[in-house]
Each structure stands twice: as C-alpha cells, then as structure tokens.
Design a protein around this nucleic acid. Structure first.
Lengths: 230, 230
DNA sequence: TCAGGCGATATTATTGACAATAACGCGAGT
DNA sequence: ACTCGCGTTATTGTCAATAATATCGCCTGA
C-alpha cells in the first residue's frame, strides 16, 4: 500500500479530485438552475458552500468561464452568464453545422463494435433516466454523443463539438428533467443506432440536427416568456 | 490626472498589461521557433527571462496550453507542443470547414464600409511586410481575416475560427518570413476584396480555403523532412 | 434639492513562502 | 555487472496574508 492512501484519503479525497469536485458542483448548481443567471458568484461564499480553499474556487471559476457558463469581470467578480435569444440562435447555428459535418463523416455502415458500444451507453442512459438522476442522465447522454461523433475520425472536430455541447448545457438541462423530452431523446438515440446500420448518411445527419431542436425551442420559448428580464 | 498614472506607470506598465506582455513574449518565442518543440518550459527560467512573477508565468502557460501550443503535464512541467502530420491534417480539416462555412455566410456584394475597412487593414499588412516586422505581419494578417469573417454575422463562428487560427499559428509562422509566401498572400487578400464586390460566394469560399494551403503544405513538408524526429 | 467628492466596505488580484510530487543518481546487495 | 531501493534535487502545486480595486452610501456646499 502506498503511504499517501492511508494518510490523505482517510477522511477526504486527493486534491486533484477535490478540484474536480468543486468544478462539478459549481457547474451543477448553475446548469440545474440553483444559481440563476446574473447571480453574483462571490469567492468567499463559494469557499464556504463547497468547503474548499480560495485557490480551488478560483480555478473552478476560471474553468467555467472558459466553458462559457460564467462571466468574470476584472476586479468586479464572477456572475452566472445569461444568453439572449439572439446568442442562443447563433450558438446553435454553429453547433448544428459542426454536428451535421461530423455526422456526414461517419463511415456507414458503422462497425459492430461501435454499435455495441452505443447500445451499452444507451442502456446506461435509460437506467439513469429511470432513476431520475439528473446529473447521471446528462453525463450518460453526453457520453453517448461523444462516442457517436468520435466515429467521424477527427478528434479536433469532436473537441469543438464538445465545446458547444458544454456551452449549451444550461439550455439543455431543463429537458433532462422533462418526461416527454426524455422519451423523445430515447427514441431518437435508438433511431440513430438503427441508421448506423444502414448507408444513409444524410438521414443520420438530419436526425442528429433534429435531435437538438426540442431543447433549443424550449429554451427560447422560456426566455421569451419573461422577456429576457435580467 | 488619475493618481495611479504618476505612481505605478512611472517605470513600468500596469499589471494587466504586464500579464499580456508575458503571454505575448512567450507565444512569440514559441511560434517563431526560438523555443523548439519538446523544449521544457520551466517556470523559474521563464520568470527570470521575462522578469515576471511565478503567478503571471503560470497564467501564461495555462493560456497557451488552452490555445494548444503548450503541453502541460501534472507535476512534470510544460513543454512546447509538437504536432504530427496526422494531427495537422485533422486540424486543417476543421479549420477549412469552418472557413468555408463562414465565407459562404457573408452576404454579397459586401457593404462599402467593410471594403474600406479591409483595404485599410491590407494597407497596414503591407506596411508591416515591407518593414519585415514578423510579429506585426502576423497581427495585421489575423486582423484582416477576423474582420473579413466577422462579416458572416455569427460571432461564435468567428471565435471558433480564431481558435483554429491560433492553433495553426506555429505552422503559419514560417511563412510570414518567406518572401514568396508573403507576396502570394498579398495578392490573395486583394483578390478577396475584389470578390467581396461581386456575388460569387463560392469563389470567395474557395479562395479562402486555398489561401491556407501554402503554409499547410510547407509545414507538412518540413516535418516530413526530419521525419517527426522528437 | 441635487451634484460631486470622499471615505468605508466588499471583493478580487498578487505575492512569496511552503508543501507535495516526480525524476534522477548513487550505492548496496546479489 | 546488474538491479532494486532510497535519498536528493528539481519542479510544480497550494495556501494564507497582503495589496489593489471598484462600489456604494454619506456628507457637504451651492
């Protein structure tokens, strides 16, 4: 047994994990709406809330700023970022473009190994959905899409796609709790796997783009409701 | 007069500028080949070289890691990142795709104000080229392209495009010093402005993609020469 | 009553000291 | 001669104190 296992991990986790945990919890608080857009994220407050040192909280804020869900202004502080309808449309425009391109690059019919992998991920997704585990649903869902698009063969394209998936996280989060939206997503995932067995790349690409319309429309409807108040 | 102007700026620049300056110098040292790929970037060494505190050097390394030209490994240190031929092809594949899409989204014929702006930027580009100011050439060149693609109307697409421009910086740098490459670039820029006056979006898109082939091919040739040694 | 500045307070930014970690070399045992 | 383990060193990671900065309320003078 390594020495630090008995010493460091007795009560708490290693630092690297602690850092990841702070990021995870802050991200969760934001995307699941516990922290409303515009809310000030004061370092001291977060230090208390997550029981972490200023250093880690700082790092987390930097990371989430890069991810686009936190806004930091020099000498002023961090706030939960709000996206206007216009911005949402622009973000989705790029995301749809990248998605379509990646889908078209997937060689059809896809190898059995990929199908098997996606079936397994889809199984996990359904399990989390049944368990109503919000965080789990989101992670399983993203894992499914990353695995799917990785088949396009270009890791840089996948990375950019992931960037936009992270950026749209606040818009997609509400749908993870929605029963109808969840059922639709499930069916679409299964349809994607079906199409991977065929040769119609265009149908696959179109389905992938359609797949993101529900949450986009829903979010746009929601912020139109209160007129972009903040 | 504000108090800090006479106090802080007497001998040196303000902190924010200092941070930017460290990033700029480190980036320059890497892209212009003064720091070879694989070279270890020790914080203490850089602190001395740039006369900056550990904090700023650290930030710079983080920033350049995000930009993709520095590789950081936990508890090991930072090195100048090297890209294999395969990776370069993949990076350019995405960059070309984004470029084509952005170009196609520019409404033609373009407004006179855009043409005027680009003509001015092109003038500056030529001036820097004549002055053999490497850094200046690169900055003027990027400013030209950002201004051009901003006309596509989607700032997020422009940001992603900029990400890839930064990523390909080490590959493009050598061409800024090359007389023939520079002359070709100049002509292509002028041709772009010409095409903005017409209505042929496809020709413009194709020219923009062609515009990046020279440095890509050159870089691939160069690393094929020494067989991806490091 | 209102404009403007001044001080108090809240918050982030910076720093240098210190802790943790991994790479390296050296020496002992086989 | 070779390898395994241990101590040393080089390097990054973390922290808590301190400096810098912006915001807001209050007070004064016209």
């Amino acid at each position: 047994m390594k020495p630090q296992e008995s010493l460091t991990e007795t009560s708490t986790l290693t630092r690297e994990e602690e850092q990841a945990e702070v990021i995870r919890r802050l991200e969760e608080d934001i995307i699941f709406g516990r922290f409303a857009p515009g809310l000030r994220l004061v370092e001291d407050t977060l230090m208390q809330r997550y029981g972490a040192s200023r250093h880690f909280v700082r790092q987390a804020l930097f990371q989430l700023e890069r991810q686009g869900i936190v806004l930091r202004e020099k000498n002023i502080g961090a706030t939960v970022r709000f996206y206007s309808a216009e911005e949402v449309r622009q973000i989705y425009e790029v995301r749809e473009m990248l998605t379509r391109q990646a889908a078209l690059m997937i060689a059809l019919p896809a190898p059995a190994s990929l199908i098997a992998q996606l079936n397994e991920l889809q199984r996990q997704y359904c399990a989390k959905a049944d368990a109503q585990d919000l965080r789990g649903i989101h992670e399983a869902n993203d894992a499914f899409h990353v695995a799917l698009f990785s088949a396009c063969g270009n890791p840089y394209l996948v990375r950019s796609l992931q960037d936009y998936m992270n950026l749209t996280l606040p818009m997609r989060a509400k749908n993870l709790a929605d029963k109808d939206g969840l059922a639709l997503s499930r069916r679409q995932h299964e349809l994607m796997i079906e199409l991977l067995r065929g040769r119609d790349s265009w149908a696959l690409a179109q389905l992938c783009v359609d797949h993101m319309q529900f949450s986009k429309a829903d979010y746009l409807g929601r912020i139109a409701g209160d007129g972009g108040k903040r």
